[in-house]
């Protein structure tokens, strides 16, 4: 465990806490894409299949449980909670995310570390996580004004993967066995998707103005 990866995991956790805060504090999920949240729940469920069969560390197990529980709780809130679900932008959140699931699964069948059940699902979860943010970014562009907490949520989500890239660079130079090309390349693509968001987030921070993404 190196500082970049720990910082990345903490930033990821912060992004989830910010989202939960937004939903709990405003009792609203406006500006949040349910499709992205469903994709994240699928990412965690397919990546942490070894939750009960393998044990790496207390930290690893606890974080996996937190990510699975929080992502399912957010999906539940947006689908079932009587007050929150009313503020869901159903007619704006129209990204056909089933294509993202299909594309990731097909790619996982072609590109994997070992042709084994868990490995295929692990690769699937890596590819899916890279593109899972797309419905959310599209929704932000469509919904025009973005409330602060939603902006911070997406920012921390992008920052977590950027820190993971530093972690992979660090491990590349220090850990001779390190060979996680699937995670590295996919992580680079994932972080690149945030590039323009980071730019507009920085501009809104510098001008102390509302975050606005061009349509």
């Amino acid at each position: 465990m190196n500082i970049f990866r720990f910082a990345g995991d903490m930033t990821h956790l912060i992004s989830i806490l910010v989202l939960l805060l937004k939903i709990y504090a405003t009792k609203s999920c406006s500006g949040i894409s349910l499709k992205t949240q469903e994709l994240y729940a699928l990412v965690f469920l397919t990546r942490y299949l070894d939750l009960f069969t393998g044990f790496i560390s207390i930290y690893n197990t606890v974080m996996k449980l937190i990510f699975i529980a929080s992502s399912l709780a957010i999906v539940w809130c947006m689908r079932v909670h009587p007050i929150v679900r009313r503020s869901y932008d159903k007619d704006l959140d129209t990204f056909r995310h089933y294509f993202l699931v299909a594309a990731s699964f097909i790619l996982a069948l072609l590109l994997y570390e070992k042709f084994a059940f868990k490995e295929i699902f692990w690769a699937f979860s890596i590819y899916l996580e890279a593109i899972a943010i797309l419905p959310q970014l599209v929704l932000l562009q469509r919904s025009g004004n973005v409330d602060n907490l939603t902006g911070h949520y997406v920012f921390f989500l992008g920052a977590y993967r950027a820190l993971y890239i530093l972690n992979w660079i660090y491990r590349y130079f220090t850990d001779i066995h390190f060979s996680r090309w699937i995670a590295c390349v996919s992580g680079l693509v994932q972080t690149a998707l945030y590039a323009d968001f980071f730019y507009y987030y920085y501009i809104s921070w510098r001008n102390n103005a509302k975050l606005k993404l061009p349509a």
């Binding site: 790496i56 690893n60 972690n167 066995h177 060979s179 996680r180």
Partner: peptide
């Protein structure tokens, strides 16, 4: 190869 077995990253 040890690394690819134990997926130690989240």
């Amino acid at each position: 190869k040890a690394d690819s077995e134990a997926k130690d990253e989240l």
